[in-house]
């Protein structure tokens, strides 16, 4: 008690002295520093957006920081047509959505057996899945490339969908197993007394109740697959199979890309990613909190 008072007395004095001298300018300085950092972080986005709408002539005559004089859309349009960007968006969407759905289904089946069924040796199953998810794709790439050629799946969207379904499901299993491990037993027992079999209990009870967690997984899998580069680069070599990051990534630094077209290509890569962020932000936070409370 006394000790506490001894310590806090000088503290009170310090604090009483501070506001007059340091505090007010100090707190604005901290805010200013953090705002400057935020501007630095956002700067590349800003500058890409500014210059994607300039003509090559306007870019070379002016400053990258200046506002575009008009809305010059030719760079964006040219790049869009050159890579058939609509098709790339569709490819990315198709692959990411298929992976997300398939990987969530597999994760549910696995987690049902591991988290609720508590099968023997479940810890080892989890370790194997986790190691599989952690392995670098480089250590799988060549055999996958070779095998997919053997079975005629090379350069197909299906090959990429299969591979990423397994990789994402390995992570999903790990996460979902611990969530389902805490699933209220009474509900399952009640269902069993009502004569529901395992299969019906899974789809009729476990899945609807776990929906918040599942939707978070679905969104994460979608975004992670969308962002993948290494394996899609190897597997999707023909133009009409390529995803957005691959199409933009391999064209980087090509001779036909002038300054404004490069910036247009970067912008087209940024827009879907930022759109997902804005669309899913709320679902993600809500889902994560629900999962945490449970």
């Amino acid at each position: 008690m006394t000790a506490g008072r001894v310590v806090s007395a000088p503290a009170a004095r310090v604090r009483a002295a501070r506001p007059a001298v340091h505090r007010a300018p100090g707190r604005w300085a901290v805010l200013a520093a953090l705002v400057v950092l935020a501007v630095v972080m956002l700067f590349p986005f800003l500058i890409v957006a500014l210059n994607a709408f300039k003509s090559p002539a306007e870019y070379s005559s002016g400053n990258p920081l200046s506002l575009p004089k008009g809305l010059y859309l030719q760079g964006v349009v040219d790049f869009w047509n050159r890579v058939d960007f609509g098709e790339k968006l569709w490819n990315s969407f198709l692959i990411s959505a298929s992976v997300a759905v398939a990987a969530v289904v597999l994760s549910i089946l696995n987690a049902y057996a591991l988290g609720i069924g508590r099968v023997r040796g479940r810890l080892w199953v989890l370790v194997v899945f986790l190691v599989g998810n952690t392995l670098p794709q480089e250590a799988l790439a060549y055999p996958l490339y070779y095998l997919s050629k053997q079975v005629g799946l090379y350069d197909s969207k299906l090959s990429v969908i299969l591979i990423f379904t397994v990789i994402q499901a390995a992570f999903g299993t790990y996460l979902l197993s611990s969530v389902l491990g805490r699933f209220p037993r009474e509900i399952l027992e009640a269902a069993a007394l009502d004569g529901a079999g395992r299969w019906r209990a899974l789809w009729g009870i476990v899945v609807p109740i776990s929906r918040p967690t599942l939707s978070v997984l679905l969104i994460f899998f979608f975004i992670w697959t969308w962002n993948e580069f290494f394996l899609p680069l190897i597997f999707l070599i023909s133009n009409d199979n390529q995803t957005v990051p691959v199409a933009i990534g391999v064209l980087q630094g090509e001779k036909m890309m002038d300054a404004t077209m490069s910036s247009a290509s970067a912008l087209l890569g940024i827009v879907p990613a930022v759109a997902f962020f804005l669309i899913f932000q709320r679902t993600l936070t809500r889902g994560v909190t629900v999962g945490a409370v449970k």
């Binding site: 089946l109 069924g117 990789i167």
Partner: peptide, 24 residues
């Protein structure tokens, strides 16, 4: 505690086990 029998949850792991074997 759970619907019918023990160890009967293994079949749920089969699809992933096969794919995991083939892909990883």
């Amino acid at each position: 505690p759970r619907p019918r029998g023990r160890g009967g949850y293994w079949p749920y792991l089969i699809p992933s086990a096969l794919l995991f074997l083939a892909v990883i």
